[in-house]
């Protein structure tokens, strides 16, 4: 081992060393591969309506973008859904409902989401916000929060689907049933 800068843990929850042991807030789904993550996204994408808000949590590499790629598939988005980190938000207009894909890591507040001057309004699109927990909930009374986690020593991810208000719980159940068909 060579000498170099001393490691200090990152300030935010970029990596997971200790997982807070809170009870599951909703159905927990095992996702052995990235293909399974996308399949869950696709099943969710098929039950989405205009105005829906999905908030994605989880550390770097937990599968937030992969899940959104699946949601894009389910909505009929044909252009590639890629990481929105650099541009903060990407808008995909060619699906059944417009998809707005946001990385809120660098947003100081919700006002800045308006400042991005997106081509579509929240009412007429599906909004998926990565790193939005603790901020994006105020955008809507009803929302679906999905917390993704990586296993310690394997590629297995888990997703906890936490329905808040509206008919989210019923639609999550419908998506999970469809996923197993």
């Amino acid at each position: 081992m060579t000498m170099g800068p001393r490691w200090r843990p990152p300030a935010r929850t970029d990596i997971r060393i200790v997982e807070a042991d809170r009870g599951d807030a909703g159905p927990r789904v095992e996702l052995p591969t990235a293909t399974d993550t996308r399949a869950l996204g696709r099943a969710l994408g098929e039950v989405l309506h205009a105005g829906d808000l999905i908030i994605l949590g989880g550390p770097l590499g937990a599968g937030k973008t992969a899940l959104t790629q699946g949601i894009g598939d389910g909505l009929g988005v044909t252009t590639g859904v890629v990481s929105p980190t650099f541009v903060i938000a990407r808008v995909h207009l060619e699906g059944r409902i417009p998809l707005v894909h946001v990385d809120a890591y660098r947003l100081g507040g919700l006002g800045e989401l308006d400042d991005l001057d997106l081509d579509v309004s929240q009412d007429e699109s599906v909004t998926v916000i990565e790193w939005g927990a603790g901020m994006a909930e105020a955008l809507s009374d009803a929302y679906l929060r999905i917390d993704l986690a990586r296993a310690d020593d394997s590629d297995v991810r888990t997703a906890v689907l936490d329905a808040h208000g509206g008919d989210w719980a019923a639609r999550v159940a419908e998506a999970l049933r469809a996923r197993h068909v």
Partner: peptide, 28 residues
């Protein structure tokens, strides 16, 4: 490059969980 990023995060977490030093220069 998403998987590569995750591989690095996983490597660092494994060391940190074991209480081992994280060789920043070597990993970089």
């Amino acid at each position: 490059f998403s998987g590569l990023k995750t591989a690095v995060a996983r490597h660092v977490e494994t060391l940190a969980r074991a209480g081992a030093p994280v060789p920043v220069a070597d990993i970089a």
